[in-house]
Design a binder for these strands. Structure first.
Lengths: 206, 206
DNA sequence: TTCTGTGAATAGGTTCACAGCT
DNA sequence: AGCTGTGAACCTATTCACAGAA
């Protein structure tokens, strides 16, 4: 397996969604051109993306929908469930807890943490909110694969430090602040204000 | 001004954040190296990014913090307020309505739309939720620069079609579905499941 | 001396184009 | 004929390295 770019991984996720839809519609075979149209790219790109991982298609025919879906799910590591902890029981945290798309894909929110004593003890979508003080101790007993950080900017780095200390290998950050993690820990940001600013730039310079 | 990449625009937003913080801390001058450290990039990258728009620095010294902040705000088109409409008064929509980061940057949510009669008429952070049927008519009277779509996947394309028909030039989509817009309309996606899948890939292939 | 601004070099990602299966 | 798989060409973005201003 050769080195694969971030963009390729993103596109694989999109292909997988389309494959799953196609499966529901009873399609058995699909061409790179079909996948391209839906993923907003070109057929050559689709084939290149897939070829990094092997040859899954049949020349003259295309790809088997269920086979390719399984293969991509495998590549993306979606063949298993992930235990996710969420730190920060605010508005965004609440939205994420109730977001069905996560659970559907095997991302199970197993614990929620907050600093606010008024929130601690309440139930969010069946999960009890715990005091963030327990975060490190809990993670030692119940290791998590992924943490989602939805705290205010000020607390985010401290939370991330605790997560890293407790051995959490992957973090998705919604706090609008750049964070430091040691090498070997995977960190991704979702920054909604940034996206709006990109639109603002586009509008200002059209 | 030469052509500027998406990544450059994203980095400019990050530089701006750091500049604003530095301003609060009373700094008057900053070097490309300082900006780089905070933006997770290199000093050469920072200088290249800025040089697409002009020469704002002083050799041997660096950049004036307030001047550069103003200049970037200008470049990004943040010198003005934007009227934003939000379509989809669900959990994510609710989180966005209350997100202070938007208003701080001049993105003002002026109207919220939903299909659910139970939600229509209620107040969200001071804004009354309207029936989505009124969307096009309202937009004709009160044009908006940006729309944020947080509907379920099924309704997103229809909503976007209405937005485009009503002349909205920029759309930020949170629905987990690819959308079609005509050329000239700016469309950006925020796909949280996709980000988790990128982490899943990283974990599976480390 | 310090730090910017920028051409030149390098690396990385995308598209082309075509040989080779089915 | 249709569609994949892939080297080669192309294009875009990042890094290097250095001349020049403060």
């Amino acid at each position: 397996m050769r080195k694969v770019s971030e963009s390729t991984v993103r596109r694989l996720s999109l292909y997988l969604r389309f494959l799953e839809q196609s499966l529901v519609h009873g399609l058995t075979t699909i061409s790179s051109g079909d996948l391209a149209r839906r993923g907003g790219t070109t057929s050559a790109q689709v084939r290149k993306d897939l070829s990094s991982f092997g040859s899954f298609g049949k020349r003259g025919l295309g790809y088997s929908v269920p086979q390719l879906a399984t293969r991509i799910r495998d590549i993306l590591g979606l063949g298993r469930a992930y235990r996710v902890v969420l730190v920060g029981a605010g508005k965004i945290g609440g939205a994420l807890v109730h977001y069905e798309g996560f659970r559907q894909r095997g991302f199970q929110i197993g614990a929620i943490y907050d600093r606010d004593p008024k929130k601690v003890g309440s139930r969010w979508n069946g999960v009890v909110v715990r005091d963030v003080k327990r975060l490190e101790a809990d993670l030692t007993k119940e290791p998590s694969d992924i943490a989602i950080v939805t705290t205010p900017a000020e607390s985010a780095q401290a939370v991330v430090d605790a997560l890293v200390a407790a051995g959490v290998p992957a973090i998705l950050n919604f706090a609008p602040v750049p964070l430091d993690v040691p090498a070997g820990v995977f960190l991704k940001h979702v920054n909604m204000a940034l996206e709006l600013e990109a639109l603002s730039y586009a509008l200002a310079n059209r």
